[in-house]
Design a protein around this nucleic acid. Sequence first.
DNA 1: ACGGGAGCCTGGAAGC
DNA 2: TGCTTCCAGGCTCCCG
Length: 271
Amino acid sequence: MPELPEVEVTRRGFADRIAGARIESVRIGKPLRWALMVVPQALVGRRVREVRRRGKYLLIDLDRGLLLLHLGMSGSLRFDIHLPEPGVHDHFDLVTDLGTLRLNDPRRFGAVVYVDDEEAPWALKLLGGLGMEPLGDAFDLDAFHAGLKKRRTAIKQVLLAGDVVVGVGNIYASEALFMAGIRPTLSATRISKPRAAKLHAAVREILARAVEKGGSTLRDFSNVDGQNGYFQLEATVYGRAGEPCRVCGTPIRQLKQGQRSTYYCPHCQKS
DNA sequence: ACGGGAGCCTGGAAGC
DNA sequence: TGCTTCCAGGCTCCCG
């Protein structure tokens, strides 16, 4: 489901529309990843200030406290004045005077957690270990290279881990490594400064482009208006095992790293 | 402290 | 057609 671009596109789709809204009721469906850390009734009457994003988390600031929202593997949000009756996979409705925010998540790897502030234990636990934001000025090349130097694991898994840089999911990790010409299995600590610079630029470019295009790389991603993503971005390597590399024609290879599929071109990507 | 693997859920596609 | 197996965009937790 969603990697950083999809989460950011989701955020942009309702942030301005929900700002200033008064919460009128909360409906809970099946349990998500963790219990909602608040009695739903306690949210009634509070107002939404703004919606921010940190990594793949959405932070809904209220006039008191905030909601941390994660879409997991299969989550999506909708926001509208009128929504149909909740279905079996609609597990959270935040009903406000400006519209209802609804989380649909078939696999229920997503989460909705309430905390008093960002220093609360749950906030620290969920957000505390996150790495640099890849979009914006805080994504510093020297810090990125230094972060990679400390890790002996394969670079693909370091990207996914999110403690050096956040937001790069399984699709964009393969794509960024292809763009940077780096073999996914290469130990992160062995990446030179020039190659780290290439990867740094690739991560930025891939994610920024995906945000611009509306996060439509994923086949079942739908935005907050319920519109389905149609492929505007074509994957260069992801999901293309056996097909010719778009640059050199060599068949794309697939392997497993930490139970996740990785795709790469054995000719274009060097160890 | 790090790295590897199991586990959390459900639905769709592929295989027999 | 029906059953079984595999696979999926994320992340935590437990173990060595």
